[in-house]
Simulated scan of single mutants.
Amino acid sequence: MSRRGGKSSGPEPYDFRRPTKLSREHIRTLQICFETFARQYATLLTTSLRAVSSISLVSIEQLNYDEYIAGLSSPTVVAMFTIDPLPGTAILEFSLSTAMACIDHMLGGPGGPQPQRPLSDIEMPLLHGLIDRTLGELRYAFEGVVQLRPEMKNIEYNPQFAQAGAASDAVIVSSFEMRVGTEECMATVCLPFGAIFPKLQGERGEGVLTEAQRAAREAAYRNVVAGLEGAPIEVSVRFQPVRMHPADLIGLQPGDVVPLAHSTSTPLAVVTADITFAYAVPGAQGNRMACLVVPSPQPGQHPTHRPAGQLGMKNRAEETSR
């Protein structure tokens, strides 16, 4: 039914599992990236395998991870890889018979029907090398959107064993028709939606800001930084912990000595929120205890302690002199 006079043909269903959807502009950007990847991938296969190969983009969909996994056959090649600097794990998937055909061509074979079995210890490095070069083409295809550094993690044959995300995580799935010699299959690339989506809209969002909006955003950023820098936090100086039996703790009396595992040549840890951000040696400043921040010790290095009378906080010493 067509729309006339600006009236809607009816209410549109809302999927609460997908509160954010790809717009037409986002789909177009992804289409350009994946079409570039398909051309580069086909060229890589043709030159590497010395067999006529073709890759063509079929569709781009937004799914949940469990929907994507449920739609894959088993066994199949599920190559999981990281997409630094973005978080999450992505997937390159294609049929096991196509993988066997690629290896057959790399070893000088004619291709043709392939056995359905896991790859051997000799075949696996060959496939790893081919996938690594394929990820290089994916990096090239997405250069206009984000500078990816994809890196291979591992390969699974059963999609149910591929732990690349939670079942409800949104993903972007692109499907390709893949042909290597006489072998044909459907290949997919699965990218985490939450990692890619901000890159699809972030740069465009900055371009529509007015000068007043940009100035207000910068002022808000400066205020947040200034507020964080002036916020008081609890800081402690700690010895290395020592393990004791409950019986020893219960039997402690005033005057008992508890040996510490902390060497006299090892500085103390300066800690806040259980995060060690500096090291220091103890001493005194006037009638108060103080500590002097020292360089972080390197493995096997024993820092030299200064006499207690020379230790103190530099800023506090300056305030005393004033």
Rank of each mutant, 00 (worst) to 15 (best):
M1H: 11
R4E: 14
G10T: 03
Y14W: 10
F16L: 02
R17A: 00
R17Q: 08
P19F: 04
T20W: 04
T20Y: 08
T20S: 00
K21E: 04
S23W: 01
H26Q: 05
H26G: 09
H26P: 02
T29A: 02
C33G: 05
T36P: 06
T47Q: 11
S48K: 07
L49G: 07
R50Y: 04
R50N: 08
A51M: 06
L57W: 06
Q62V: 00
Q62T: 04
L63P: 05
I69L: 07
I69T: 01
L72H: 04
P75C: 12
I83S: 00
P85E: 11
L86A: 07
T89L: 14
L92I: 09
L92A: 13
E93V: 11
L96H: 01
A101G: 13
I103L: 01
H105S: 11
G108R: 05
G109V: 10
Q114F: 15
Q116V: 15
Q116Y: 10
S120H: 08
M124K: 14
M124W: 14
L126A: 04
L127M: 01
Y140A: 14
A141L: 12
E143L: 12
P150N: 00
P150D: 01
E151H: 12
E151K: 11
Y157T: 07
N158E: 10
F161N: 11
F161W: 14
Q163T: 05
A167C: 03
S168C: 07
D169Y: 03
F176W: 07
E177R: 10
R179Q: 10
G181Y: 13
T182W: 14
M186I: 15
C190S: 05
L191V: 04
L191I: 01
A195N: 02
K199T: 08
K199W: 14
Q201T: 10
E203A: 12
L209F: 10
L209R: 10
L209S: 07
A216P: 05
R217F: 03
G227W: 09
G227F: 06
L228F: 15
E229Q: 11
G230A: 15
I233Y: 06
I233T: 03
F239R: 01
V242I: 15
V242Q: 15
P246G: 02
P246N: 05
G255S: 03
D256M: 01
P259Y: 02
A261Y: 07
A269T: 13
A273F: 09
Y279C: 06
V281E: 14
G283A: 03
R288A: 08
M289N: 13
M289H: 11
C291P: 08
V293N: 01
Q298N: 09
P299E: 06
P299A: 02
P303I: 15
H305M: 13
P307T: 09
P307H: 10
G312W: 00
G312L: 08
K314R: 13
R316N: 11
A317Q: 02
T320D: 12
T320H: 09
